[in-house]
């Protein structure tokens, strides 16, 4: 699904990713853990196509296609979804309208017919029920005045509806209490199957209790320094990142 080779990226001339390699096959959940400033969020932004970051070397293939030459919206329509760590507010645009515009853009790209208002509403209602979101969120402006937890849940709602092949969850657990985390994870887990891949970026092991990964990678100073199974995450929680930093 995703194949990253020797990826180097920088922002404002400062190198952040320094030769990152990573392979995420379809049907798997990979967790990226690492200390602050290790490049976790940079990785997610680069994969989504944020123009503030410059890729200086290396490549990223998505379903065999060169991801890095695509515009951000092309990537999204191809099925790459980023759940933002800090989702932005868009005043005056209702959540429902935003979702429908995005969903239809993706559907058109897939050659599927646009959803009529009724079917769309049905799907939104179902998804919102799954995520225990109040119906009034449909008519509120995108993320405006949402609490941190509400914003995150709104990201997962979009994930559920857009149904991407590759979902990148950037610090999904930050600002979420345990209940909210459980609910949001339920949304993610509902999508897990042989056709979907997930890249879960987190600082804390806690999230991985809810979204259990197949593989865990430790990112330090722009490179993956260690990979392993679920137990690696528990090791990190016990020992911290110190050893890995020393070894990097």
């Amino acid at each position: 699904m995703l194949e990253i080779k020797n990826l180097h990226a920088s922002i404002k001339g400062k190198a952040i990713l320094k030769g990152l390699d990573l392979v995420v096959p379809a049907g798997e959940v990979h967790a990226i853990m690492g200390p602050n400033g290790s490049g976790k969020s940079t990785l997610s932004k680069v994969l989504a196509g944020d123009e503030a970051y410059e890729v200086t070397e290396g490549q990223a293939l998505y379903k065999g296609k060169d991801l890095l030459t695509m515009s951000p919206d092309e990537r999204a329509r191809e099925g790459v979804f980023l759940a933002f760590q800090y989702p932005v507010e868009i005043p005056g645009v209702t959540n429902a309208y935003f979702l429908r515009t995005a969903l239809n853009a993706v559907r058109r790209h897939r050659g599927e017919p646009e959803l009529d208002a009724f079917t769309f509403l049905q799907r939104v209602k179902e998804a919102m029920k799954l995520l225990e979101m109040d119906a009034e969120f449909r008519n509120r402006f995108v993320n405006v005045g949402f609490s941190g937890g509400e914003k995150k849940r709104n990201e997962i709602l979009q994930l559920t509806l857009l149904n991407p092949s590759l979902a990148i969850l950037d610090e999904m657990d930050s600002g979420l209490d345990v209940d909210a985390l459980r609910i949001a994870s339920r949304g993610v887990n509902a999508l897990r199957d042989a056709d979907h891949a997930f890249l879960v970026i987190t600082h804390y092991q806690r999230l991985l209790d809810y979204i259990v990964p197949d593989h865990v990678h430790i990112l330090v100073d722009g490179r993956i320094v260690q990979s392993g199974d679920r137990s690696l995450a528990l090791d990190v929680e016990r020992a911290g990142y110190v050893d890995h930093q020393a070894s990097a």
Binding site: G49, A76, F81, I90, T101, A102
Partner: peptide, 16 residues
């Protein structure tokens, strides 16, 4: 960028 990440073109994003 947020709108684009959800699949909208830049122009659609601006209009929105």
């Amino acid at each position: 960028f947020y709108c684009q990440q959800r699949g909208m073109s830049e122009e659609d994003a601006v209009n929105l």
